[in-house]
Design a protein around this nucleic acid. Sequence first.
DNA 1: AGAGTCTTCCAAAGCGCTTTGGCTTTTTTG
DNA 2: CAAAAAAGCCAAAGCGCTTTGGAAGACTCT
Lengths: 340, 340
Amino acid sequence: MNLKQLAHMLALSQTTVSRALNGYPEVNEETRRRVMDAAKRHGYRPNPSARRLATGKTGMIGYVLPTGAAVDIDPHFVEFLSGLGDYARSHELDLVLSPADADDQETTYRRIVANRQVDAVYISSPRPVDRRVALVNTLGIPFIVHGRSEGFDFDYAFTDIDNEGAFHEAARLLIQLGHRRLALINGDDRETFAIHRERGVRRALAASGLTLGERHVCSVVMTEENGYRATRRLLEEGDAPTAIACSSLIMALGVVRAVRDLGLSIPGDVSLIAHDDVFPWLRPENFSVPLSTTRSSIRLAGARVAERLAARISGLEEGARGEVWPVDLVVRGSVAGAPA
Amino acid sequence: MNLKQLAHMLALSQTTVSRALNGYPEVNEETRRRVMDAAKRHGYRPNPSARRLATGKTGMIGYVLPTGAAVDIDPHFVEFLSGLGDYARSHELDLVLSPADADDQETTYRRIVANRQVDAVYISSPRPVDRRVALVNTLGIPFIVHGRSEGFDFDYAFTDIDNEGAFHEAARLLIQLGHRRLALINGDDRETFAIHRERGVRRALAASGLTLGERHVCSVVMTEENGYRATRRLLEEGDAPTAIACSSLIMALGVVRAVRDLGLSIPGDVSLIAHDDVFPWLRPENFSVPLSTTRSSIRLAGARVAERLAARISGLEEGARGEVWPVDLVVRGSVAGAPA
DNA sequence: AGAGTCTTCCAAAGCGCTTTGGCTTTTTTG
DNA sequence: CAAAAAAGCCAAAGCGCTTTGGAAGACTCT
């Protein structure tokens, strides 16, 4: 059933039917009702391909997915997606993932914009002066950055959490408990979130006249294994830290394992606070020693990004508004006063 | 730059240019070269929306993503996606995720087929007599099932691993080591893979005149927490098993934690074998006690599914061919002879 | 040389929708 | 009550591509 047929059976023109369906004002309310009614009764659904061609609107939001044998999609992605999808569903939006060579995403961005394959895109895991942000900004497609990039001469729209504040609070708590040697097991420090977290820790230390030892901060891909290795290294060297801040729950698993393997205990010998993105399948309260965390649901962020993208697509949101969400500090059993 | 302009500047008709570009035979080879050349030089790319409208081909493969506040996307998904994306990229295919109410995916399937939004779809985590498989089969869109459904009166194309064989081998090994009381911590037993795994274990036990105790098999969502709980329950009750087969590495984390919390050891008191889907961020060889696994890369499966979908789209693959991949049994330190 | 066959190209008709510009008819207004 | 404005509808022109049905010219064959 296409528009032509529907119009014919209503003895109206395609123009009128189209306008009635799309809520244009220049059609009699009764006519509109008739049309709407007939459309529903016959299950008429405008052909999206045709609509696309005519309007340029696709009803899809895009994401350029870096791929390659050596590229691992972050498990956070799926949780973010969960939130995004949930919102998208309620607004009849689809999500298109365009796989790209991790080293050449530009081509793909240009393609999806030039081809008008999507109405808007989002960018995740940004770095300072992220090229993707600059590119997408000049290409002129609506977009939201999940996270923050920095150092541009333009503003843009983003949704981020207060990583610096979160880790500042975490470090401050540890310092208050008497810890003097903190360590930070961080994610990839080319990404902004990691930079912000480190900054937060340093700021808290500095406020008490302390510093973050050079060997007490490390930046690794956030795997269980790397958490383990980093912790072994930290605790086996001289000048071992008495408290660790950790950028992910998955790494924290490794931290816990390493501490135990060394015959030490949490929080007796080492206090631990990790960042929790709120995975349903890995809960900090269920660690052997319940884990203190800085908590922010990445799923909620996904839903929010979708919401903002939808708003931008329909012109309800404009401008370069950035928003920063506060992060909860949840104290559980994994922190205690510094050992004597 | 569109076809019209390109044709005009070449002093050819749109027909010829279109045909030259799409490799039709009825065009002079030299003309074709000229066209190809000009197209490349001017960066001409056919508008996909227009092509879609004309041909119905979208260059996209679809996946219906169940969503909802209570729905968690399986972390396996992202790894599968990784492989899928990697292959899709090399073939200029995009992936569109259509979020659907988890309880009403049918509407979404019907929509994407009726609207011709994608050229093919894949289905994951199938159950026996899975409605999605039946639906998609009648809708007549090319599809591949990742996993297996059962009990239909028709055949279909799938790519699956030998879950039964894998768990049969694992159980057989444990039995050979003298274990008599095995337990299985399984995934959702409404899904085929879990059913197959249980069947494998039972078959191995039966071959030695043993059975799987009713309380020795459990079916849970595959989280660390559930692995922990299941293990506590298993080991604290009478008639505790001396060996555990576990359907996922994430649950195995919980198993290990529970065993340790009970003051027991692996493999001294309990032997453990888990299924490893090969996550880059969680490796069985890095468990405190290196974990024996049945191993099959879900990422490779993703790439294979993409490959088959691409083949089906271009008509290179037909029929209801199903393929079943063998699974490696990798023995590491977590298994040993049964305690006396 | 004339008929038949390829080869190579083209004009035009879709694909199904939106939107422009215009034409009636009805309502408002001075 | 005539003129102006508003309301309600339509025909037709796109959007940019593919594909059908020819047609002209080149080639083969008897």
